[in-house]
């Protein structure tokens, strides 16, 4: 009886000494991490929409902000969401396809200039595209004079710009994954008479589906998040904007800061992205960490 007690006691002391303070630190850091999110949720459901009276638990709860968000015809949240989805899905898709083709070749074929290609891809990518925003603006402006659909204010040039960033970090990620697939399968297929494209389509693609999903998601989130080039190319005209650029108009507007509908929209845009992130946490984290700690 006594020994059980002392074990319990020891366990208790160990918990108090080694674990408790970890929970305290954990709770403090967690509140820092969640701070803006919690406030975003509370503001979204607070019908007063006033930042100066905002409480953690809203006094006047309601869905007014969401009604406002969807009934505003000058700031059409529905159209922005559609724009964001169209741009992000097409461009991320383009990135995965073009990146996968390049990565396959870089992983499986040996050719002159291969190392040069790999290092060029990495170095060019190190120069962030947004530095060239000025120039992209001028180029797209020139395009627009000849083909209006490729000009400023249209989605197509933006999709091409983002999709064209395929040769970069994505290609590297895909190539590292392809490298882990045993080449024996390719060779067996080659003996059976499969061409290089057939090997890619029938062997590599099915095996690499998980990494395609991760790459697609990372690109998708990055594009949804993009602000500078999107606003430069699409301009600040009501129906053209994406969620990221458009929601900003609620708080930079002429008539003061309208936090209610902004936070409501931000919450709606955050939920699906966050759900995907947490759902695929294991893959994303292992992708980031393995890419980081290798070498």
């Amino acid at each position: 009886m006594k020994s059980v007690d002392s074990i319990k006691n020891r366990k208790m002391r160990f918990w108090l000494k080694k674990v408790l303070w970890r929970h305290i630190v954990g709770i403090i850091v967690a509140s820092f991490a969640l701070f803006p999110l919690v406030w975003m949720i509370s503001a979204a459901f607070d019908v007063t929409g006033q930042i100066s009276t905002q409480q953690l638990i809203p006094v006047h709860k309601g869905l007014d902000n969401f009604h406002q968000l969807f009934s505003n015809t000058e700031k059409p949240f529905g159209i922005w969401s559609k724009n964001s989805l169209v741009i992000a899905i097409s461009a991320a898709g383009m990135q995965v396809i073009i990146g996968a083709l390049a990565a396959y070749s870089l992983s499986r074929h040996r050719f002159r200039g291969r190392k040069l290609t790999l290092s060029t891809i990495l170095i060019v990518q190190m120069f962030p595209q947004l530095l060239a925003a000025t120039t992209l603006f001028l180029i797209i402006n020139t395009f627009g004079k000849s083909f209006s659909i490729l000009g400023l204010g249209h989605q197509l040039p933006l999709i091409l710009i983002f999709g064209g960033s395929a040769l970069g970090i994505n290609t590297w990620m895909l190539k590292s994954f392809f490298d882990t697939l045993p080449t024996e399968i390719d060779e067996a297929a080659k003996i059976d008479g499969a061409g290089h494209f057939e090997i890619f389509r029938k062997i590599i693609v099915p095996l690499a589906t998980p990494i395609f999903v991760v790459t697609f998601l990372l690109s998708f989130i990055a594009i949804i998040n993009e602000y500078l080039i999107t606003s430069v190319i699409l301009g600040l005209d009501g129906n053209n904007m994406t969620v990221a650029v458009g929601l900003q108009q609620f708080i930079y507007g002429q008539y003061g800061k309208n936090w209610g509908p902004f936070t409501a929209g931000a919450l709606l845009a955050t939920i699906p992205v966050m759900a995907l992130f947490i759902f695929l946490q294991k893959h994303l984290v292992s992708g980031l960490v393995s890419g980081a700690t290798k070498g």
Binding site: A33, P36, L37, M40, A244, L247, I251, A266, T270, I278
Partner: peptide, 25 residues
């Protein structure tokens, strides 16, 4: 705790930064 700690990565940064700007008013 890890899941909670990585939530800042999961919120579109454009939106979270704007929310921060409101918090800092």
């Amino acid at each position: 705790y890890r899941t909670i700690f990585i939530i800042p990565m999961a919120i579109p940064s454009v939106l979270s930064i704007l929310v921060w700007s409101g918090l800092f008013t």
